[in-house]
Design a binder for these strands. Structure first.
Length: 944
RNA sequence: GGGUGGUUAGCUCAGUUGGGAGAGCGACGGCCUUACAAGCCGUAGGUCACAGGUUCGACCCCUGUACCACCCACCA
């Protein structure tokens, strides 16, 4: 960093030379501020509308690698379309994230020893808003660091006023259309958060558990307690709420018991033995205890058999007063322990077996979810889902990659009603009121309800205490953000939106619900394409998680971080010292010197290079360094171009005569191919292919070859002024074009350089963001130039190869002799000798005529042409023999393979003629080459 | 129990209608060659998971197997 101070970079901004080395930290933030303050991100013009909705991140969240990836993809699409001249909107906003946000604030209160109930609802909500104001800017600030270019002027929040309107409107209309109802049924209850959650918010993982076999004695009248049957259960504590025991109706063992009763141990309640097909006679004992109020299957069975439902828990999963006094107020797992002991003491514990089972846990709280009988609001999803299925089947919405449609269909076809009420305080309050009798009225406000239903002042109304599931409001995101329920211009212009970029993990939570709700309220799709990307994992394919200590923060990759703060970050709040030690060790091993500051452009380019077809992304920090180097490469190439072109005519005004060299024509032709490849990559969401095309063009073609080919032209008197002008013109124009081509991927470095280069290329405009996106021009495809330069590259590479394997110093200028029958070769050689001499560092290059005396030489082949490097004083005979043998070996293998193939009559008879001809030609070429090398070997060996 | 994706160089991954296996990083050797040592030049490295099949010809198409990852499902 020593000689690349920020001072030198600010000089650059004033028009001095670019800083010697690429320093992203010096250019990125100032550039972003300029873009934002000048309002460049807002939609403009009257081109085709193109609109992307950001999946709203949690308002109080922070940016992780998944966001980084996703926003980078969106920004690339947005910048591409903006440059294409489309009327481009990237709608930004944040989500109130009901449970997540409320939990954070409750935790803060907890630190002060308070609960939300100490504050009361109103004060608590105030507190959440405060927290939102305080920390809510973080995620959007971080988004800016990524160079994201959404229209900040229309930023939305899922609990802003407009959204409140939209949410109410949707709720009321769905209610009036009988698509929302309220009902008492078994829901997934989170006893830590004390709220219902939807099926999707329950994660079932296999865990080690036990299967307790309990003896249930029959009633005395039926032969108990001597006669008993054995039930197997994973949750003994629920037995307090049992209201039946079920057996399979065809189970011969228990035929005589059906209809008899059991005296429930510890409780004394008489419960019937019933028969039901659901029971699998093979599992356990074939007898199942039935707890209708605390198990989804038992609930259904309870309904089929009209069993009583006894709710034994309170909302924190402690036992209530429906159980014997001994157990009241016990926590569920304590009660389990107690009951097992009591069963054992009573001689009623048959056995305990280890058992693997799926344990349902809340995705937020992590505690075991309890099926719990409560009143909740539901969306009747079937009719909505039917339409949503048809729409995707009909192709009006396309998933990329397509296989995610299967996932969507399978979920949609088996969809359950959606529980939308949450017993939280932070969220959209349900617009429903109850009178003293519990009769429900739905409307925009109490006044509205009173007016609509003619309710006088004597009737007391109270609003429903619950709020809506967060996804209920984010389901309206595409049209809610554009002004709905009002029919705004924005809505008309940008809806349906163009592409949704999202992770597969929220296809059900969000994508499916947006499709259902949007179709219902807009009669149109929310978006035409869903681009589904994978999860960002660590370099070994492990999920990034706090407990694994492998989390990378995108901001740290941009700004860099020293080892100590990185360690601190990764182990903060770690309760287990063992885990902490392990994470420290592994972090030290991986990031001995911390993480370098790579800058946003490098980070973005890494994401693109890893974004292939919908699979998960393994993020390797090693790769970002390579792409930071790539940015540096562009930077230095630009420096070189400026050095040679600034202050000299470059054809920017189009008035002077210029002439293009072969190299110029070649790089222009290759540029057309690159433009086509990059555009193809973006249009097909193959950002990996697009970035690959850019990378190899810039580095291999433009820098490694073209800039080198320019040097003889610019530095030698052998080229005319017209040729020099043509080369300068091409240098700046290709660079200027490639900057525009790369801008959606590398927004900062391209803008920074473009500001300097554009004038030389005759381009104007205040920002590269509004410069036109390059389009391939077929008239500039120059196959001849490409073939000629390929030939030249082959000759040069062959000479370099000889130099390399013979250990000849790069500084030694070599005399080279060429020999061949082809006049093409001879012409190409004489036309390009300047290039050849410079790039291969030759003393001379001579075309041999028949009969010329040939000294002992090292030999290489470029096509048919022999390239000879005289050995005198340079080349070791043994080494050259070895080199030739290697080449000869390769040729022999190929010849063997090809003659085998061509010797096969079936191949010759069946394969297309063109294929056969091609193979024959290759064989002939190889044989010629082989003969030449063998000749050389013979000559050399005589020297040994 | 159903379903999806994956298995290609030491690592991370491309491979377009079936016709001579590629990139980046890493490794090795040589270079401070006047844009760039964050660089330049060159080299090595693969039974394309396994087994069958179709075909003149298979990384590619078909069948099966193994392993990895993920999604869905009510087995007490």
């Amino acid at each position: 960093m020593s000689d690349n101070t920020s001072a030198s970079n600010s000089d650059a901004a004033k028009g001095g030379s670019l800083a010697k080395t690429y320093q992203p930290a010096d250019i990125e933030q100032p550039r972003y501020q300029e873009w934002e303050s000048k309002g460049y991100f807002a939609p403009r013009g009257d081109g085709d509308p193109f609109c992307v909705m950001i999946p709203p991140p949690n308002v109080t969240g922070y940016l992780h690698m998944g966001h980084g990836f996703q926003e980078s993809i969106m920004d690339c699409l947005i910048r591409y379309h903006r440059m294409k001249g489309d009327q481009t909107l990237w709608q930004v906003g944040t989500d109130h994230a009901g449970i997540a946000t409320q939990m954070v604030v409750e935790r803060l209160l907890g630190a002060e020893g308070k609960t939300r109930h100490d504050l009361g609802r109103e004060k608590f909500i105030e507190k959440v808003w405060e927290w939102k104001e305080h920390s809510g800017g973080q995620i959007t600030r971080q988004l800016r660091r990524l160079g994201a270019s959404p229209d900040w002027s229309t930023e939305r929040f899922t609990m802003d006023e407009g959204f409140y309107e939209a949410v109410q409107e949707v709720f009321i209309r769905l209610y009036e259309d009988d698509l929302i109802y309220r009902g008492k049924r078994l829901v997934n209850w989170d006893p830590a958060l004390k709220t219902a959650v939807s099926d999707l918010e329950v994660i079932s993982e296999e865990e080690d558990g036990k299967l307790w076999h309990l003896r249930y004695p029959l009633s005395e009248a039926d032969g108990g307690p001597e006669r008993y049957l054995i039930v197997a259960t994973t949750r003994p504590e629920t037995m307090l709420g049992d209201t039946a025991v079920a057996v399979n109706p065809n189970d011969e063992r228990y035929q005589d018991l059906i209809g008899k009763t059991i005296t429930l141990p510890m409780v004394g309640r008489e419960i019937p033995i019933i028969a039901d097909d659901y029971v699998d006679p093979e599992f356990g004992t074939g007898c199942v205890k039935i707890t209708p109020a605390h198990d989804f299957n038992d609930y259904e069975m309870g309904q089929r058999h009209s069993l009583p439902m006894i709710n034994i828990f309170d909302d924190t999963a402690h036992l209530n007063d429906q159980v014997p006094e001994k157990y009241q107020s016990m926590e569920r797992f304590a009660a389990r322990k107690q009951l097992v002991e009591d069963f054992e003491a009573a001689g009623l514990l048959e056995k305990i077996e280890p058992h693997k089972l799926k344990v349902p846990r809340g995705d937020r709280s992590g505690v075991v979810i309890e099926p719990y009988l409560t009143d909740q609001w539901y969306v009747r999803t079937q009719p909505l889902a039917d339409e949503a299925i048809k729409t995707v089947e009909g192709g009006d919405i396309q998933f990329v990659p397509k296989q995610y449609e299967n996932m969507y269909f399978s979920w949609m076809r088996d969809i359950q009603d959606w529980c939308i009420s949450r017993q939280l305080w932070w969220g959209h309050r349900i617009p429903a009121w109850y009178d003293a009798d519990g009769k429900v009225y739905v409307g925009k406000s109490e006044a509205d309800v009173r007016a609509k239903h003619n309710l006088g002042g004597d009737i007391t109304l109270s609003q429903d205490e619950d709020v809506l599931d967060t996804w209920f409001s984010s389901g309206l995101w595409t049209f809610g953000t554009l002004g709905w329920p009002e029919e705004t211009e924005r809505l008309k212009t940008f809806h349906p939106t163009s592409v949704l970029v999202t992770g597969f993990d929220i296809i059900f939570f969000w994508v499916a619900r947006m499709i259902m709700l949007t179709l219902y309220f807009r009669k149109e799709v929310p978006f035409k394409t869903v681009y589904v990307h994978g999860l960002v994992r660590d370099s070994h394919g492990q999920k990034m998680s706090k407990s694994k200590g492998n989390v990378l923060d995108p901001i740290d990759l941009i700004d860099g971080i020293e080892l100590p703060p990185l360690l601190e970050k990764r182990t903060a709040g770690m309760m287990q010292p063992q885990l902490k030690a392990k994470i420290e060790k592994q972090t030290k091993a991986e990031f001995e010197d911390g993480i370098a500051a790579y800058g946003t452009d490098a980070l973005r380019f890494t994401y693109y290079s890893l974004a292939s077809t919908g699979r998960d992304i393994n993020f390797d920090v090693g790769r970002i360094e390579g792409f930071r180097n790539f940015c540096n490469k562009i930077w230095n190439a630009a420096n070189y171009v400026l050095m040679n072109c600034e202050g000299k005519p470059c054809g920017e005004n189009g008035e002077s005569e210029y002439q293009l060299t072969l190299a110029d024509r070649w790089i222009i032709a290759r540029l057309q191919q690159t433009e086509a490849a990059v555009i193809e990559g973006i249009e097909t969401y193959r950002f990996d292919l697009a970035s690959q095309a850019l990378y190899s063009f810039v580095w291999q073609e433009y820098c490694s070859w073209y800039l080198e080919l320019c040097k003889p032209v610019l530095n030698s008197d052998d080229y005319s002024a017209e040729q020099k002008l043509g080369t300068r013109r091409t240098l700046v124009r290709v660079l200027e074009t490639v900057l525009r081509l790369a801008h959606p991927f590398l927004p900062y470095v391209t803008e920074e350089i473009w500001q300097r280069v554009a004038p030389l290329a005759g381009a104007s405009g205040e920002t590269i963001m509004y410069a036109p996106y390059p389009q391939a021009d077929a008239s500039k495809a120059d196959e001849q130039a490409i073939a000629d330069i390929e030939w030249l590259k082959e000759v040069i590479t062959t000479i370099r190869n000889i130099r390399g394997s013979m250990n000849i110093s790069p500084a030694t200028k070599l005399p080279v002799l060429c020999k061949g029958e082809s006049t093409d070769d001879q012409q190409r050689l004489s036309a390009n000798s300047q290039f050849l001499i410079k790039l291969a560092n030759l003393e001379s290059v001579t075309w041999l005529s028949a009969g010329d005396e040939i000294p002992p030489c090292a030999t290489g082949l470029a096509g048919d042409m022999e390239i000879l490097v005289p050995m005198a004083g340079l080349i070791d005979v043994t080494a050259e023999m070895a080199r030739l043998d290697k080449e000869i070996g390769k040729l022999n293998n190929e010849i063997k393979r090809l003659s085998g193939k061509l010797g096969n009559d079936k191949f010759v008879a069946n394969a297309p003629e063109a294929v056969v001809a091609k193979e024959r030609e290759k064989l002939a070429d190889y044989q010629t080459s082989l003969a030449k090398l063998n000749d050389q070997k013979a000559k050399i060996s005589s020297l040994a």
